[in-house]
Amino acid sequence: MTIHTKSLSRRGLLRDSAMLMASLVAIPIVIISPAARASKASKSDFHYQEQPREGKKCSDCAAYVASPGSNAPGACKIVDGPVNPNGWCMAYSAR
């Protein structure tokens, strides 16, 4: 009887483990779609705007990556797409 109980328990553990591992593998496959984007966040998630806010602007932010040319749009380590050096978002951190 004891052996029988242990056997059932082992099967249960194997089943649970298999479910966990299957979830880990399957769900990413399911959620990857052609519309999937790169890992950066959307501008709207960080309330990005094209204007400075209270004197703060992207070109002064530590996450801003400038492009050659002083007024050319740059990039950001956090939000996706071209970034106006005079823009602003809520992740702003002074250099």
Binding site: P28, I31, A36, S39, K43
Partner: peptide, 19 residues
């Protein structure tokens, strides 16, 4: 964590997994 955004940039869905 595994995370990915799908759909419309401004009104899409952020999906993720956590262990």
């Amino acid at each position: 964590r595994y995370a990915q955004q799908i759909g419309d940039k401004d009104h899409g869905v952020l999906l993720g997994l956590t262990m």
